Amino acid sequence: MTADREIQDEELMGVAHDPEQALRLRRSLRTIAGATSLDPALRDMAQSVLSGNVDVKDAFQDPRYTEAVYQRLHEMRRAAEDQTYAEQQQSKAQFGAWDAGQQAELDRERAERDAPVHGSGGDRGGRTARH
């Protein structure tokens, strides 16, 4: 599958409650689509939604995808239960570092999204999502 097009945040407003949630959802779909360690059904779902071939609401209701999500959550829960205290502390520290990096990327994407568009006759972008 080629990534000729990627949906915009506005196209996720059918399930997202605000532009911030839409941004986070699109970023999460990108992460899932690129995670080779995940179930191929999950990656396929994310790629299909990102390309606009599958509506996000339809994907969330498709039994193939929901089963893959539940299976992954079960695996994560089991792995967390099997961790020693030291491993839990290490995981928390790693998550803190990862989360800080994610926050920096989100801040950059927000700045790009909200930046005025130059060269369009003074228009400040005209990209307002109203829902």
Rank of each mutant, 00 (worst) to 15 (best):
113 R>V: 02
16 A>V: 03
75 E>I: 04
101 G>Y: 07
75 E>L: 07
100 A>H: 06
35 A>W: 03
55 D>F: 00
101 G>N: 05
69 V>K: 09
6 E>L: 13
39 D>A: 00
46 A>G: 01
123 D>P: 14
51 S>D: 01
86 A>I: 14
128 T>A: 11
123 D>T: 13
119 G>Q: 09
95 F>D: 05
118 H>M: 14
124 R>L: 14
42 L>V: 03
5 R>W: 02
125 G>M: 01
79 A>R: 13
92 K>A: 15
48 S>M: 04
61 Q>D: 03
49 V>A: 10
86 A>D: 15
75 E>K: 09
51 S>L: 01
109 E>H: 08
120 S>A: 15
125 G>N: 04
25 L>W: 08
10 E>R: 06
39 D>W: 00
31 T>L: 12
85 Y>F: 14
65 Y>T: 01
26 R>H: 05
1 M>G: 10
14 G>N: 02
28 S>W: 10
30 R>K: 06
62 D>L: 03
115 A>V: 12
55 D>S: 01
72 R>Q: 08
98 W>I: 15
115 A>P: 12
106 L>P: 06
73 L>I: 12
82 D>Q: 11
109 E>L: 11
75 E>M: 08
25 L>V: 07
64 R>K: 07
68 A>Q: 08
14 G>L: 07
16 A>W: 05
97 A>I: 08
121 G>L: 03
29 L>C: 11
6 E>Y: 15
48 S>R: 02
52 G>L: 01
8 Q>A: 10
71 Q>L: 04
25 L>I: 09
41 A>F: 10
113 R>P: 01
32 I>S: 08
24 R>E: 10
130 R>Y: 14
15 V>R: 11
13 M>Q: 00
6 E>K: 15
80 A>K: 13
15 V>K: 12
53 N>G: 02
52 G>W: 02
46 A>P: 00
